[in-house]
C-alpha cells in the first residue's frame, strides 16, 4: 500500500533552463523550464518543430541537454520510465509476448518469471488473446496497444508518449484515448503526452503547456479539472469547446499566425 501525499514537496522532475540545439545549430529548446507534478497528465502542445518531442527525449535520457539541469526528485523515478514512440517500434521478428517481454528481458528477467507481468500488461491494453501474433498480423491500433503494454510492463512511475496516436484513424484514436485514461486511473502513472492535436490534448490532460514554434517558450498553460469525467458528454460540453478555443488560440499564437 503506497501512501499518497496530497501535495508533493517537490516535482517528480524539474527542467531548469534547458537548452538543446539540433546538429544544424537551430535551437530546439532555449531556456526551457518545466515542473512535472506526480500523478498529472501533462500535454506538451505545439506546432511541428517546437521542441516538444525534444523535451520528452531529454527527460527520457535519450539525448543530453546542451545547457541547463534536469533534477529528479529521487533516482528511482529517473529509472522508472516508460516511453511510447510515434511509431509502435516493435521487433518485427518477435511475437507480441516477446515484444512486451523485451524491457524485462533486457533487465535480466527470464521469460517464465516475467510471464505473469507480461500477461498482465497485455490484458490491460486488451491484447490478451494476441500474445503469439506477429506485429505484421496486427492493425495499427493494436500495434500501438502492444507498444503501450511494453511501456507499462516495467511498471513505470512516469510514462512519456511522443505523438503515439498521430498515425491512427479517428475512431481508433478515440478508443485508445479512452483506454489510456482508464489505464491512467487504474495505475496512477504520471504521463507526459506530446501532440499537435488540440482536441486530444484537452480531452486527455489535466494540464496543457502550449509551446512557441521555436525554442520551446511557453505561450500558455491551461489547467483542466482532473475530476471532470472524460467521456462523450465532456467532448460535447461547452467547457470542452471553451478549452479547445483557448488551446487553439495558443497554438495559433505559437505558430506566429493571425486570423
Amino acid at each position: 500500500m503506497t501512501i499518497r501525499v496530497a501535495t508533493p514537496a517537490a516535482p517528480l522532475v524539474a527542467l531548469r533552463g534547458i537548452g538543446k540545439a539540433f546538429a544544424n545549430g537551430v535551437a530546439a529548446l532555449d531556456g526551457f523550464d518545466l515542473d512535472l507534478r506526480e500523478g498529472e497528465f501533462l500535454t506538451l502542445l505545439g506546432p511541428s518543430g517546437c521542441g516538444k518531442s525534444t523535451a520528452l527525449r531529454l527527460i527520457a535520457g535519450l539525448a543530453e541537454p546542451s545547457g541547463g539541469r534536469i533534477d529528479w526528485r529521487d533516482e528511482n523515478a529517473a529509472q522508472a520510465i516508460g516511453f511510447v514512440f510515434q511509431e509502435p517500434t516493435l521487433l518485427p521478428w518477435s511475437d507480441v509476448f516477446a515484444n512486451v517481454h523485451l524491457p524485462l528481458r533486457l533487465a535480466g528477467v527470464a521469460r517464465e518469471t516475467a510471464a505473469p507481468r507480461v500477461r498482465e500488461a497485455l490484458a490491460k491494453v486488451g491484447l490478451a488473446d494476441f500474445e503469439s501474433a506477429l506485429p505484421r498480423e496486427l492493425s495499427g491500433g493494436m500495434k500501438m496497444r502492444a507498444a503501450i503494454a511494453r511501456a507499462l510492463v516495467t511498471r513505470p512511475r512516469l510514462l512519456l508518449m511522443d505523438e503515439p496516436f498521430a498515425a491512427l484513424d479517428e475512431v481508433t484514436r478515440f478508443r485508445l484515448n479512452d483506454d489510456l485514461l482508464a489505464l491512467k486511473r487504474e495505475l496512477g502513472t504520471t504521463i507526459v503526452f506530446v501532440t499537435h492535436s488540440v482536441y486530444e490534448s484537452v480531452y486527455l490532460s489535466t494540464r496543457i503547456i502550449a509551446l512557441a514554434a521555436r525554442g520551446g517558450a511557453v505561450v500558455d498553460e491551461i489547467e483542466i479539472d482532473a475530476h471532470v469525467a472524460r467521456d462523450e458528454e465532456f467532448r460535447a460540453s461547452a467547457e470542452f469547446a471553451r478549452l479547445c478555443r483557448r488551446a487553439s488560440a495558443a497554438l495559433r499564437g505559437a505558430a506566429g499566425e493571425r486570423l
Binding site: A60, G61, L62, I81, F83, F85, Q86, E87, T89, L91, L102, P103, L106, A107, T154
Partner: peptide, 10 residues
C-alpha cells in the same frame, strides 16, 4: 527508433 528503445532500457 529500435536502437533508441534499447538505449531507453539501458
Amino acid at each position: 527508433a529500435l536502437v533508441e528503445l534499447f538505449d531507453l532500457y539501458r
